[in-house]
């Protein structure tokens, strides 16, 4: 009976005790079992408190870590000497460490990105340093994948995301929409503010609290500028902003309130001697030329033209001298 089961077994030319081999197999099996239990526990316990992606990374890390320890323990049990391997491994580690430096940095950044909870799947974000914006599609251990607003896929290494200034447009529950509208100086600003306030009250997407803030903000060159600041659910920021601009235009048109385009009133001044400036004279020249052609230049205009010609000649003389 004893002879039927050999004490050693030859594997690749090396005699290995069967008992040791059995213990090795048991170590690996127990390692796999412990790894699975750990993975299940993490799913149940950590999964409740951490985002799905973070839990996944931790789960995989712990699972493969335990299996690696089990495998090395098992190989050590077979009598394999790791001294040389450790030395070679150490040197290799340094080489590989340099080679995969950025990969490891991305991996750790990915983990911190999950723990930081700055972004979630579906959030519209802007990575300021990279001048990239889009919707977060996936956060993998090494990269974050965005769908740019124009539909283009972008993969950004996690390290860059983690070290960049990041704007998350869905970071908070509510956001403020800011629109400025200019009305003519002749209009009643208080009445316009009241009309805009009523318009905001009718829009179901504009929050009642915090209250809309509508105020005269600036007495600008061409218009009295009214700022409309309203709070909306974050996901409605863009639709409400476009709605408000259109509704403001329709409202002011309906109420006959002028929204002036930029314009400038040009005043032609006079010198201390009562002489008009040159632009004024030039315009008047054109007017009088037309008048002469029509044969209707008044006598006083003719004398004025003579006077101006005289002054021009004097100026020319001074320039020459």
């Amino acid at each position: 009976m004893v002879d039927l089961i050999p004490a050693t077994i030859n594997i690749l030319g090396t005699e290995i005790e069967l008992l040791k081999l059995l213990i090795t197999a048991v170590i690996i099996a127990v390692g796999v079992l412990v790894a699975r239990i750990a993975r299940l526990t993490i799913t149940r316990v950590v999964g409740r408190y951490l985002p799905h992606e973070t839990a996944e990374i931790i789960k995989k890390g712990v699972y493969w870590g335990i299996i690696a320890i089990a495998v090395f323990s098992a190989i050590g049990n077979l009598g394999v000497d790791f001294t040389g391997l450790l030395l070679a491994g150490g040197i290799m580690g340094i080489i590989v460490g340099f080679a995969v430096q950025s990969t490891v940095a991305n991996l750790i950044s990915g983990l911190f990105l999950h723990l930081d909870r700055a972004i979630r799947i579906g959030d519209p974000v802007e990575v300021v340093e990279m001048n990239v914006s889009g919707v977060v599609n996936e956060i993998t251990p090494f990269s974050t994948r965005l769908r740019r607003f124009d539909g283009v896929f972008i993969r950004i290494p996690n390290e860059k995301i983690f070290t960049s200034q990041l704007l998350n447009f869905f970071g908070y529950m509510a956001r403020r929409v800011e629109v400025t509208v200019g009305i003519a100086y002749k209009e009643d600003a208080a009445a316009v503010i009241q009309l805009i306030r009523e318009m905001a009250a009718r829009n179901p997407k504009i929050l009642a609290e915090p209250e809309p803030n509508i105020m005269v903000w600036e007495l600008a060159d061409s218009s009295v500028n009214i700022n409309v600041w309203v709070w909306v659910p974050s996901q409605e920021w863009f639709p409400v902003r476009t709605e408000i601009i259109q509704q403001l235009k329709e409202l002011l048109d309906k109420e006959g309130i002028e929204m002036p385009f930029p314009h400038r009133t040009i005043w032609f001044g006079e010198s201390k001697t009562g002489v008009k400036d040159m632009l004024s004279v030039a315009i008047r020249e054109v007017q009088t030329d037309v008048g002469e052609k029509q044969g209707s230049v008044p006598e006083n205009r003719k004398s004025e033209r003579r006077e101006m010609s005289k002054l021009d000649r004097q100026d020319a003389h001074l320039d020459d001298s």
């Binding site: 529950m173 179901p204 929050l207 915090p210």
Partner: peptide
Amino acid sequence: GKIKYALYGIPENGIICRY
């Protein structure tokens, strides 16, 4: 009826409520 919502609390940690 008229539909309106409001924020209870502050934007950082408030909740949107039907108002």
